[in-house]
Amino acid sequence: MNIFRLLGDLSHLLAIIILLLKIWRTRSCAGVSGKSQILFALVFTTRYLDLFTNFISMYNSAMKLIYLVCSYATVFLMYFKFKATYDSNHDTFRMEFLVVPVGGLAFLVNHDFTPLEILWTFSIYLEAVAILPQLFMISKTGEAETITSHYLFALGSYRALYIVNWVFRFYTEGFFDLIAIVAGCVQTILYCDFFYLYITKVLKGKQLTLPA
């Protein structure tokens, strides 16, 4: 474990908690893409199948459990408890356009052609593009609530910090995982225009609006 990865995990945890609290306390999931949340729940499900077979540390197991519980709780709140506030008219990104190509790629490009490894690879590729429905929804509505933009900033920062962690691990341990690194770079690049808007607008107290 290194400080970059710890900060990355905490940023990821913060993002998940921010979103869950936003929906729970405002009793509304307006402006939030339910499809992205379903994809994140799928990412954690396919990545943490080794939760009970491959014990790394208490921290690792606890975080995996928290991510799984919070992501399913968010999906539940959005599609059941606060379904009336779910903006399905703007959350129209076709998930199959992501899941099918990512599934195919996971079969073609992986480290080991075994079920667990292919599912792990699928989760890495899927996580890289899972935010697209959310970014697409914001581009359709042309704006995002401030709390949602904080959520996205924390979520985007997590994988950016992981990239620093991978560089650090490469130079200190010689460890690197090209699949995770390439997917992590794609994932972070997708946030770039949002990062620009967040830093130039939200941090100046303005509403996050996209140029129509």
């Binding site: 990865r5 080794d50 790394i56 690792n60 975080m63 490894e117 992981y162 010689g174």
Partner: peptide, 10 residues
Amino acid sequence: TLDYNRKDEL
């Protein structure tokens, strides 16, 4: 190369 299957990251 190191053992990839050392899945110690989240």
